[in-house]
């Protein structure tokens, strides 16, 4: 059975239908990305999957149990970083660490927070307030905060959106390392508007059609060996095929009211090999 499972999930804000019949499964330790256009409902989907907002129809389960609240094993990176402006970078991370490991002695908590801030390259900005940090630096604090609690499940909402290409590449590699460094398999569900980023990091990728009433495309597997370099993305045949396939789906969604393909049954949505669909 899959670790995280969304079955036929629908969600409306008042009269506005955002998601309609979304199906998604994640195995334990899998890294799955969702790409989609702006305002298609990506954040809504992620928040619902994480148990942060209620949904109207369908079911969401984690490890076989219905998701009703945010899981104690999970971390969430918000699209707008959501740092507390009255706390320094260190305090922001340490607040999460203290809550996650209440039994640890204080020095150990402190060490953990500093370790993760150093990992994202903010060792020198520990005492700065968010207002004194650049957008990219804030984003890195929020990444450190999410990982410092050593979660088993990660929900990431455009975690690299505010970064320049260079920092983005460094942190993408860092994310891969972090996902493994924790020692247990980390299951990750990431939202991104960047197809290359999805290919670089994911085991599987799905596209969310343009709303209203957005649905997910069948999943595309990415079987490239890791670590994956940026040059690989440019030239590897499979990467190119995956990119084209996703672009096709996203573009098809923009022409019509409804996406071109729609999975008939939940099971069919999983693991459509990319070779077969082209």
């Amino acid at each position: 059975m899959s670790f995280i499972e969304l079955k036929d999930v629908s969600k409306s804000y008042g009269p506005r239908n955002v998601l309609s019949g979304v199906n998604l499964t994640l195995d334990e330790g899998e890294f799955v990305s969702i790409v989609g256009a702006s305002a298609s409902g990506k954040t809504t989907l992620l928040k619902a999957a994480a148990g942060l907002i209620p949904y109207d129809k369908g079911s969401i389960t984690m490890a076989g149990e219905a998701v009703t609240d945010f899981s104690t094993k999970a971390s969430y990176i918000f699209q707008n970083y959501s740092l507390l402006p009255w706390l320094s970078a260190f305090e922001n991370v340490n607040l999460a660490v203290e809550a996650a490991f209440p039994d640890w002695p204080k020095p150990m908590q402190k060490e953990q927070s500093e370790k993760y801030l150093q990992m994202v390259g903010l060792g020198a900005a520990l005492l700065k307030k968010p207002s004194q940090l650049s957008g990219g630096m804030r984003q890195r604090v929020s990444i450190a905060r999410a990982f410092a609690t050593e979660p088993r499940v990660m929900f990431l909402d455009e975690p690299f959106g505010a970064l320049d290409a260079l920092t983005r590449a460094t942190l993408q590699q860092e994310l891969t390392t972090l996902c493994r460094s924790v020692g247990r398999p980390v299951t990750a569900l990431m939202i991104t508007n960047n197809v290359d980023e999805a290919i670089l990091l994911s085991d599987r990728i799905l596209a969310l059609s343009r709303g209203p009433g957005a649905t997910l495309s069948p999943a595309v597997s990415v079987n490239l060996p890791r670590p994956r370099g940026a040059d690989l993305l440019m030239h590897d045949d499979q990467a190119i095929r995956v990119r084209n396939h996703l672009a096709e789906f996203l573009l098809a969604g923009s022409d019509r009211e409804r996406p071109a393909q729609r999975p008939e049954a939940p099971a069919a949505s999983k693991d459509v090999p990319v070779e077969a669909s082209i």
Binding site: F78, L83, L84, W86, L95
Partner: peptide
């Protein structure tokens, strides 16, 4: 709502939620 979401995601205790989020905000 963002700050309340943070409090929820970090699983802050009621007291911490109050002192670290509600009160400063």
């Amino acid at each position: 709502q963002d700050y309340l979401n943070v409090a929820r995601v970090l699983r802050l205790s009621k007291w911490r939620q109050f002192t670290k989020v509600w009160l400063p905000a």
